[in-house]
Simulated scan of single mutants.
Amino acid sequence: MDARSHFETLARYNRWANRQLCDVAAQVSDAQYREDRGAFFGSLRGTLNHILAVDRLWLERIEGSGPKPSSLDGILHDGFAGLRAAREAEDERLLRVASQTPAERFGSTLAYRSTEGEHYELPFAQVLTHVFNHQTHHRGQAHTLLGQFGLKTPVLDFVYFLLESR
């Protein structure tokens, strides 16, 4: 499998997993959505906003344009409906980036500045891998929060996406 196909598959999985998670998150009350449950970003609201903020930050670095959040813990969308719509749009953007990136770029280096202004250079493919891994990590935290509310949480394992996508 070439790099582009690999990352397109990860982008489709990412969109699938986020939709599954959002379908369940839509069942919580606004109070539950905002309740600080002791997660790394406090609440379901904080966790889902963090994922979106980091995606936007990395995609701005990759594309050189687009929204660029000023912090990793800011609330980009206060209510769930707005966040869900933004999540859908960002997942489509991520899929577009994966599918339209020239093949040679996957072997290149991405130079960027951290939120503190420090200059870094990392292999582009590894940065893109980080974007997907970061979402998986924090989606797991959101998944736990949903379970704490007594909701039936979805199975989000990559293999189930592959089986469903055949």
Score class of each variant (00 low, 15 high):
Leu57Val: 04
Leu57Tyr: 12
Leu57Cys: 00
Trp58Lys: 11
Trp58Thr: 07
Trp58His: 03
Leu59Gly: 02
Leu59Arg: 05
Arg61Met: 10
Arg61Trp: 09
Arg61Ile: 05
Ile62Val: 13
Ile62Gln: 07
Ile62Met: 03
Glu63Ala: 14
Glu63Lys: 06
Glu63Asn: 10
Ser65Gly: 13
Gly66Trp: 01
Pro67Ile: 04
Pro67Asn: 10
Pro67Gly: 14
Lys68Gly: 11
Ser70Lys: 15
Ser70Thr: 13
Ser71Glu: 15
Leu72Ser: 15
Asp73His: 12
Asp73Tyr: 06
Asp73Thr: 09
Asp73Gly: 14
Gly74Glu: 13
Gly74Val: 13
Ile75Gln: 01
Ile75Glu: 04
His77Thr: 06
Asp78Thr: 10
Gly79Tyr: 08
Gly79Cys: 10
Gly79Arg: 14
Gly79Leu: 12
Phe80Gly: 07
Phe80Trp: 15
Phe80Arg: 15
Ala81Val: 07
Gly82Leu: 04
Leu83Cys: 05
Arg84Val: 09
Ala85Asp: 14
Ala85Val: 09
Ala85Phe: 08
Arg87Ser: 08
Arg87Gly: 04
Arg87Cys: 07
Arg87Trp: 13
Glu90Cys: 12
Glu90Leu: 00
Asp91Lys: 11
Glu92Val: 03
Glu92Asn: 12
Arg93Phe: 08
Leu94Glu: 02
Leu94Arg: 03
Leu94Pro: 00
Leu95Thr: 05
Leu95Arg: 09
Leu95Cys: 08
Arg96Cys: 02
Arg96Ile: 04
Arg96Met: 08
Val97Cys: 05
Ala98Val: 00
Ser99Met: 09
Ser99Lys: 08
Gln100Cys: 04
Thr101Trp: 04
Thr101Asp: 02
Thr101Arg: 01
Pro102Val: 10
Pro102Trp: 07
Ala103Ser: 09
Ala103Lys: 08
Glu104Val: 07
Glu104Gly: 13
Arg105Ile: 06
Arg105Cys: 00
Arg105Lys: 14
Phe106Ile: 01
Phe106Lys: 09
Gly107Ser: 13
Gly107Cys: 01
Gly107Val: 03
Ser108Asn: 10
Ser108Phe: 01
Ser108Val: 04
